[in-house]
Simulated scan of single mutants.
Amino acid sequence: MQVARTLRAGKVYRREDLAQVSNAVDRHLSELVADGALKRLAQGLYYVPKKSVFGELPPDDHELVTAFLRDKDFLVFSPSSYNALGVGTTQLYNKTIVYNHKRHGMFSFGNRQFDFRVKPRFPKKLTSEFLLVDVINNLDELAEDKNQVLQMVERKLPLFDQAKLKRAVSTFASVATKKRFMAWHFSSDHA
């Protein structure tokens, strides 16, 4: 009962968080999972289901990643976000990318895939300028025709905030992406 009283709907917990309020944490976790009060996401990671009119809601991505990494310095997004740029990407992706400073690899939580990538720098929030640089950084991973995407990006360059785009290229672009932007004469003509 002590463990159950500390649980909050929608919150993600690590085993060690709950061990602080339990003298038999593994037994209590098993009982709470069996009762449906807790759902197991991965080894040592649990969440309290939040109910809606449509049934149980999955945990919030930010809450989940914060608990998993034990850190709040990360950026979560879907590659489907590239579609809003209007550069010819239309694919819907069933994965979530997490740029962070700690973990690298594919992790499953419940029935969802998260692609953790260690990056030295990433913004706090998604911007269209960052996404434009990132779509070129990740061009080889796209399902779309790469040459068509490149042509669309080059055509759309003048529509972006040039100062923000120049900062995004300088801060977040890989060497190959920087060369591509230079080939488009971005640094002198467009900035």
Rank of each mutant, 00 (worst) to 15 (best):
L32K: 13
N147F: 04
L69E: 06
T90N: 12
M152P: 07
Q2I: 12
D115H: 03
K166D: 10
A163M: 08
K50R: 14
L41D: 01
G88C: 01
M152N: 15
Q162N: 06
A37W: 12
N111C: 03
P120W: 06
G88S: 02
A37L: 14
R121M: 07
F122Q: 03
P49R: 07
D60L: 02
V153L: 10
E144L: 06
P158N: 10
R15F: 13
Q113S: 12
D73W: 00
L69Q: 08
N111W: 01
L157Q: 00
D134G: 00
L131T: 02
K51P: 00
L38G: 05
K156T: 11
K119P: 04
F116H: 02
G88A: 03
F181K: 00
L159K: 14
R14M: 05
N137G: 03
V153N: 10
F74Y: 07
L132F: 00
A19K: 12
Y82L: 00
E16M: 07
F77T: 04
G88K: 07
A67D: 09
D71W: 01
I97Y: 05
K51R: 08
R70W: 01
K166N: 11
K50P: 02
N100H: 03
A4L: 13
S108E: 12
L38E: 02
G36H: 11
S78M: 01
L7G: 09
A176V: 06
V149R: 02
G110E: 07
L29K: 02
D60T: 02
N23S: 15
L139D: 03
A9Y: 12
L92P: 09
R14D: 00
R117E: 12
R27C: 04
A191E: 03
F68M: 00
V87Y: 04
N100R: 00
V3G: 08
N83A: 15
S108C: 09
H101F: 07
S80Q: 02
Q151M: 12
A34V: 11
F172E: 00
R112D: 07
Q2E: 13
K102F: 11
R167Q: 15
S22N: 09
E56M: 09
A19F: 10
Q20K: 15
V87P: 12
A173T: 06
F54T: 09
Q43N: 14
H104Y: 10
A143T: 04
A37K: 15
S128R: 13
S174F: 10
L64M: 01
G86L: 00
P123R: 04
D61H: 15
K119I: 08
L32C: 09
S174I: 06
R155I: 06
V153F: 07
T90P: 02
G10P: 06
N111T: 06
R121G: 01
S78K: 03
K178S: 08
T96V: 15
R103K: 08
M106K: 07
D17I: 07
K156I: 06
A173E: 01
K156A: 14
L131Y: 05
N83E: 14
P59C: 09
D134W: 01
N83C: 13
